[in-house]
């Protein structure tokens, strides 16, 4: 049986204009990525900045098309965006003129859920993310953590099979981030969704992922996939301090270390050029 999501030799190249001339040069963001994700799995992609993590997510979300290879979701090739995949953006992407409730309903309107069911469904999912009582607040009246909860509720409400998360907690303070990570794990266990999560934080990757995929610096390739076996995270106190956690953390740090310095070198070259 084939996997839920399959990346088969996925490559994405961009054309970049060379400054001061009419020539175009090609820029490879990700290069021949092969990766399988099982149904209900929580996979974290981690890599140095500019390694094409977000490009991979855009490809899976159908927002851009790969230059080579293909992405297969449940046996069907991904050719465009669809409601079987829900994206949670780092900048929340909430509609500022709608209330929390209205924002969750926005996703339901797109799927054609009848008007009457929308309100109840939206309340149910706001409850799932712990926002009961905040239905009528507008985004500017909510804290960053609460906004991201609304965004998660919106993505879950229209019942996609896969949740794609693009550094969703990067803009939050440390405490809020930790509580949202726990919340996300709890939601994941309850809903059984497949989650593809992007981060540049090693701690976050180890804490959340069943598998952590380490990407190389540009062009992004899969360097190694690490299976994390820490049991049920939500049932343990202060898992981050355990020796097990530290071991995984160090392992991934090791894998990333060379890549990060290489990425920084690349950046210097780009700026210097």
């Amino acid at each position: 049986m084939s996997a839920h999501i399959e990346f088969r030799g996925v490559t994405k190249r961009f054309e970049v204009k060379v400054r001061g001339s009419r020539q175009h040069t090609e820029f490879t963001a990700v290069d021949t990525i092969d990766l399988d994700v099982e149904r209900g799995e929580f996979v974290v992609l981690v890599g140095p900045s500019g390694c094409g993590k977000s490009t991979l997510l855009d490809l899976l979300g159908g927002l851009t098309a790969p230059t080579g290879g293909e992405i297969v979701l449940d046996g069907k090739q991904v050719t465009g965006p669809g409601l079987d995949r829900g994206i949670v953006f780092q900048q929340y992407a909430l509609l500022p003129w709608r209330t929390a409730q209205g924002n969750v309903e926005f996703g339901l309107e797109a799927t054609g859920v009848p008007r009457r069911q929308r309100a109840a469904r939206a309340r149910e999912f706001l409850d799932l993310v712990g926002l009961t009582g905040f239905e009528d607040r507008h985004p500017h009246q909510l804290s960053g953590g609460m906004r991201q909860r609304v965004a998660i509720a919106r993505s879950l409400a229209y019942d996609p099979q896969v949740l794609l998360m693009d550094e969703p907690f990067a803009a939050l303070d440390a405490q809020t981030r930790e509580s949202l990570q726990d919340e996300l794990l709890r939601i994941w266990q309850r809903t059984g969704k497949t989650v593809v999560f992007i981060t540049h934080s090693i701690d976050e990757a180890v804490y959340l992922g069943q598998r952590v995929v380490v990407l190389t610096s540009r062009p992004g390739r899969v360097k190694e996939t690490v299976t994390i076996d820490l049991g049920d995270r939500t049932k343990q106190d202060d898992l981050r301090s355990s020796t097990e956690f530290a071991r995984y953390r160090h392992r991934i740090w090791d894998l990333l270390h060379d890549e990060v310095s290489r990425a920084q070198q690349q950046e210097k070259e780009v700026v210097g050029a």
Binding site: G62, L63, P81, L83, R85, I87, Q91, A110
Partner: peptide
């Protein structure tokens, strides 16, 4: 806001 446009596109509006 371009993020809102990306959101709308991801939802295939």
């Amino acid at each position: 806001d371009p993020t809102l446009l990306r959101l709308a596109r991801s939802m295939d509006l």
